[in-house]
Amino acid sequence: MTGLRALVLSPLCWWTARRTARRMARPGWRAPVPVISVDSLSGDVALPGALAVIEKLQGRGLSPVVLIGRDVAAPTGVDEQKHTYADVGGAALLAAAFAPTWVAGDLLDGARTVLSHTFAYGKSPGCIVLIGESYNPRIQSDIFIAIVDAACGFGNGLCRPAGPLPEPLEQAMARVDICLTIGRPALHEQFAAAWGQVIPEHNIRARMEVLPTGMDWRGLRVLAFSGAPAPEHFVATLRELGAEVARAVTLSAGQPVTRALITRLRNEAAMLGAQLVTTEADAVRLPGDLRREVLVLPMRLRVEDWGALDAVLDRLGMA
């Protein structure tokens, strides 16, 4: 947001801060298992960080169950073979490939359903991982992991509507147990210089890396399309792999990836002599029968050191 606009809107920040404080002051339900909330304070997608956390928990012998807020009639266990993007959303479909995943309109109802369903099968979830629901007061979290894009940081540091934050930064950091920052090494240093005084002691650095699949991208002419919050990272990665990006198309947030859109992009790619390519998050939005026509660039989060999370988990007695 531009400086002038932020300055004009800054007097309204007190309303956002007050509303958030009142909402979060409500007592939430305490689950019988640990609850880990993974979210982004500035509205960026928290999923890559959440998936890395899930794999880390599984590596410690825990059995996390994922819970994501979604406007559904009743809590629903996600089935990758049965459900579509329209049914449960892209985050839930991707998370379901890593761990049992549920979506619910009411998180409290969802959490109770998850537990009763799991216990009914003679199992016990090691923990519940809430993705993107840190400001929902219905359930108390034992650990709050904030995902931060090192390139963007916390924007101008102001809360809405003058900035990207849901509450004043100092207030938010009082609830955060761990900051997981994502970016290249130089960006981590810039982030630390700008925000190191306000982030919690526990900070985990990570970066997105291409998942090796044997695909040789060198010399491949592509038309790249993505609705990711920072599509320029996706395009830059393709170029680093040696692909020739003939055209890059940015989709607006929440824009439906319809058959008509893919047909138009396919025709444009044909005229350019290019192959369609997109991200995993965008691929799950494609009509099923068209997915085979689009290459996917899979990426995963590589964490430098999980020591900060290990320390917090040890403190809570989570094996």
Rank of each mutant, 00 (worst) to 15 (best):
M1I: 03
G3S: 07
L4M: 13
A6H: 01
V8M: 10
W15L: 15
R18V: 04
R18H: 12
T20P: 12
T20K: 10
R23G: 08
M24T: 03
A25Y: 12
W29Y: 14
W29C: 11
W29E: 14
V33S: 07
S37M: 05
V45H: 08
L47V: 09
V53H: 06
V53G: 05
E55F: 04
G59A: 11
P64G: 07
V65M: 12
V65K: 11
R70T: 04
V78S: 10
D79I: 05
K82H: 13
A96C: 11
A97L: 08
F98V: 13
F98G: 01
D106H: 04
A111T: 10
V114P: 01
Y121V: 13
S124G: 02
S124F: 01
G126K: 07
N136C: 03
P137Y: 01
R138H: 04
I139T: 09
I145E: 00
A151G: 12
G155V: 06
R160K: 12
R160N: 10
G163F: 00
G163S: 03
L165Y: 14
L169E: 02
E170C: 04
E170S: 11
V176F: 03
V176A: 02
V176N: 03
T181V: 15
G183Y: 12
A186V: 13
A193L: 06
A194Q: 15
W195E: 12
G196P: 08
I199F: 04
P200F: 09
P200M: 03
E201S: 07
H202Y: 15
R205A: 13
M215P: 00
G219M: 07
L220W: 13
A228L: 08
P231W: 02
T237Y: 01
R239A: 08
E244W: 05
R247F: 00
A248I: 06
T250P: 00
G254E: 13
V257A: 06
R259N: 06
A260S: 15
I262G: 05
L265Y: 08
R266M: 11
N267C: 05
A270F: 14
V277M: 08
T278V: 08
T279K: 09
T279C: 12
A281I: 09
A283G: 07
L286E: 04
P287S: 08
L290S: 03
E293I: 00
E293N: 07
L297M: 02
M299H: 05
R300C: 09
E304Y: 10
G307W: 02
A308N: 04
L309H: 10
L309D: 09
V312R: 15
R315C: 10
R315G: 10
L316V: 01
A319P: 04
